[in-house]
Simulated scan of single mutants.
Amino acid sequence: MFEISAENFSVWKKKQLLKGGDKKSFSLLIDLLGGLSKKELNSLTIKAEKNLKFKLDLDSLEFFWGKHLSTNIPIQYLSGICYWRNLKLEVSDKVLIPRPETELVVEIISRKFDNNKGQIIFADLGTGSGAISISLALENPSWNGIATDINKNAVEIASRNFANNSNQSNLKFYSGNWWEPLTYLKGEIDFAVANPPYIPKNTYEELPIEVKNFEPKNALLGGEDGLDHVREIVKYAPLYLKEKGWLLIENHFDQGARVKQLFIENQFTDVEVLKDLSGIGRFTIGRYK
């Protein structure tokens, strides 16, 4: 650990922020790489006499901040860590950085299966870092989950994240395209969730540099209209879901009506487009028959 006075750190912090960047990213860097939480960082003005302990020295932190500013590499990839809900997850450029809006997936499912402590079987398609499936498994120990991803590196990362956040065994990880690894569970899944690549081609070309240049393209680009993978997931869902089983898909902000129609065309009922915290129709959910 490296120790420095709060006063000296505050001077150094002002110097770094004058170089550019935003306070949110700087706070995240100090947290993930320096080991000083946002709460502790915000309290420095009150406790200016305090000595602070860091995992890295200020020269090292300055190096990483400069690298972020010069390359636009997300802080999460520089540190290899991301916070999501109450999880601390390993991430790399092999997986998307889990977004705050996706946290609502867990809450939506929890409401649908409120107080259901039975033997629920769920699937998380395209799990990436494992964020959704790990949260569901940890919060519902009696449920059994299966998480899939076409990227073997993502499966390895998700598996480590589950092991690092839990000693439970109610979640398994498989490599394969969407439903492909789940043939042994046809007709047995109570609900499935997916946050597939849904960015339309034209929109992908306009994404911010820190997203387009560093996050995996195959986890973002959903084809010409963004719906290539959504169509596939919805089309084959009836083979795997129980009768009355649920499917929940995160979609692009302007795709809700079209995704809803795909659900209806594939014999789903009770189809809804649910809004995120910004009032955007971000999630489409439906029940098979």
Rank of each mutant, 00 (worst) to 15 (best):
D57S: 09
L58A: 07
F63G: 00
F64Y: 15
F64P: 02
W65V: 09
W65L: 10
K67I: 08
K67L: 15
K67W: 10
S70G: 04
S70C: 06
N72I: 02
I73W: 04
I73V: 15
I75W: 04
Q76G: 01
Y77D: 10
L78N: 07
S79H: 10
S79D: 13
I81T: 14
C82E: 15
R85I: 05
R85D: 08
L89V: 10
E90Q: 14
E90H: 11
D93N: 14
K94F: 06
K94W: 01
L96D: 05
P98K: 09
T102R: 12
E103F: 11
I109N: 02
I109Q: 02
K112S: 03
N116A: 00
G118P: 01
Q119V: 01
I120D: 05
D124I: 09
D124N: 06
D124F: 05
L125H: 07
G130Q: 10
A131I: 10
I132K: 03
S133V: 14
S133N: 01
I134Y: 06
I134P: 05
I134H: 06
A137T: 06
N140R: 12
P141V: 10
S142T: 15
G145K: 04
G145H: 06
A147T: 08
T148H: 05
N151P: 04
N151A: 12
N153E: 15
A154R: 05
V155L: 07
E156A: 13
I157T: 10
I157N: 00
I157H: 02
I157V: 11
A158R: 07
R160T: 01
A163V: 07
A163C: 02
N164K: 13
N165Q: 14
S166W: 01
S166P: 08
L171G: 03
K172Q: 15
K172I: 14
F173K: 09
Y174L: 15
Y174H: 13
S175K: 13
G176H: 07
N177E: 13
W178R: 04
W179Y: 13
E180V: 02
T183Q: 13
T183N: 15
L185D: 00
L185I: 05
G187A: 06
G187K: 08
E188Y: 02
I189S: 05
F191K: 01
F191L: 10
F191N: 03
A192S: 15
A192G: 08
V193T: 15
V193Q: 04
A194R: 05
N195T: 12
P196H: 11
